[in-house]
Design a protein around this nucleic acid. Structure first.
Length: 210
DNA sequence: ACATTAATTGTGT
DNA sequence: ACACAATTAATGT
């Protein structure tokens, strides 16, 4: 059943002997919602493939400020871990399970071995790297050029997409933290959105309408 | 059921 | 951004 998952989730991995190797050396690991997967400063000795659930990738400052970089879902891999693994550097980001999440940990040596051995694997890594880069550019310019209300709406939509839910239990200050804004600003914008009938609010609750 | 308290949200400056 | 008010949920009595 792992094989089925891998073929469905990672359609570019067609080489059967590669899939067999992945099955053999991948270690599956479960994370509960909210659990830390990778901490800033940690050394990585594996490459995580996401089988199910979703992961949010956060950039965090020492003073507690943070920005949401992007979400990863089933079929993705963490691009940061690639950079990190190549030069055995410390992680520069935090990754948190946004949902109940299942990962397949690929030992670093295996990944390197497969890079040389399977063009499938090499392309997969390259492509996911390129995709993440794209996502990242998108968030960079939304931070740089978009107003906070646009960002808030995008944030909610991205969250809805990733969690496959339109209603979240989250507080205004948690949202503010992820967008690196203030709680008051978010409260006020959310209320505007509520008046425009775009969202419905409650304590610990934001619901996207439409 | 009611009172107390803590957390979350609202508002004016 | 700050200070404080208001509201809501959780908990104890």
């Amino acid at each position: 059943m792992v094989r089925l998952n891998i073929q469905q989730l990672f359609p570019t991995l067609t080489d059967l002997s590669l899939i067999k190797e992945i099955e053999e050396s991948g270690i599956s690991k479960d994370f509960e919602q909210g659990e830390e997967i990778i901490r800033k400063g940690q050394f990585l000795n594996f490459m995580p493939l996401i089988l199910s659930g979703s992961v949010k990738v956060i950039r965090e400052e020492e003073d507690g400020r943070e920005v949401l970089l992007y979400y990863l879902e089933g079929g993705n891999t963490c691009a940061m871990s690639i950079t990190c693994c190549l030069n055995s550097a410390q992680s520069s980001i935090n990754a948190i399970a946004e949902d109940k999440t299942e990962l397949l940990m690929i030992p670093l040596q295996k990944s390197e071995e497969w890079m040389a051995k399977y063009s499938n694997w090499r392309n997969f890594i390259l492509m996911s790297y390129a995709n993440r880069m794209e996502e990242l550019l998108y968030t960079v310019d939304s931070v740089a050029f978009r107003s906070l209300d646009e960002r808030l709406l995008k944030y909610l939509e991205a969250k809805a997409h990733i969690l496959k839910k339109r209603e979240f239990s989250i507080t205004h200050s948690e949202i503010a933290k992820e967008l690196n804004s203030s709680r008051e600003a978010i409260s006020r914008l959310l209320k505007k959105l509520e008046n425009i009938e775009v969202v419905e609010l409650g304590r610990n609750k934001v619901k996207l309408l439409n």
